[in-house]
Amino acid sequence: MERSLLVAGFGGQGVMLIGKNIGYTASKKDLNATFFPAYGAEMRGGTANCSVVVSDSKICSPVKQELDEIIVMNDLSYEKFAGRVKKGGALYINSSLIEAKYEGDDITTYYVPVADIARKVGNPLVANMVMLGAYVANHEDIDVESMKETIKENLHGKENLIDVNIKAFEEGINLMKGGTQ
């Protein structure tokens, strides 16, 4: 098993954290994982992205031309990366910010209104955790409780933000389980 993911958005949306949490939680489960952050060079307009590869065997390249899954958090990322999902792969779209609709049926698309949900939860900054929840809901091999532990570890020193982050994460899971597509 090897699965590649790219998470892209603009600075401040917490795209790095989505990727890092997925990589770290996989590594806790004795899977191999690589997380590579990219800012700049291939990017424009203050955007950032990261590549995550999770595998039960050796990982050669931490970056890929085509990816199994891509999460896009803003328009620019959608334009740049949507076409790089492999056939049969999945594209997660922040539908609160991205109006475009993916044309074609070669991949699965998920439209997740992460910013709207984050606002409902009470903090627009946790939109990334909603997206993380939506992603985790679709992957049985990522343990939900383990991911919650990861989220808590990241908030060391900001314990007052744990509840809202966990809530956002859970809302993301619920949304997917409820079958929003």
Partner: peptide, 8 residues
């Protein structure tokens, strides 16, 4: 790549 990739 080497400096910034996080891995096991």
């Amino acid at each position: 790549f080497l400096a910034n990739t996080i891995e096991n």
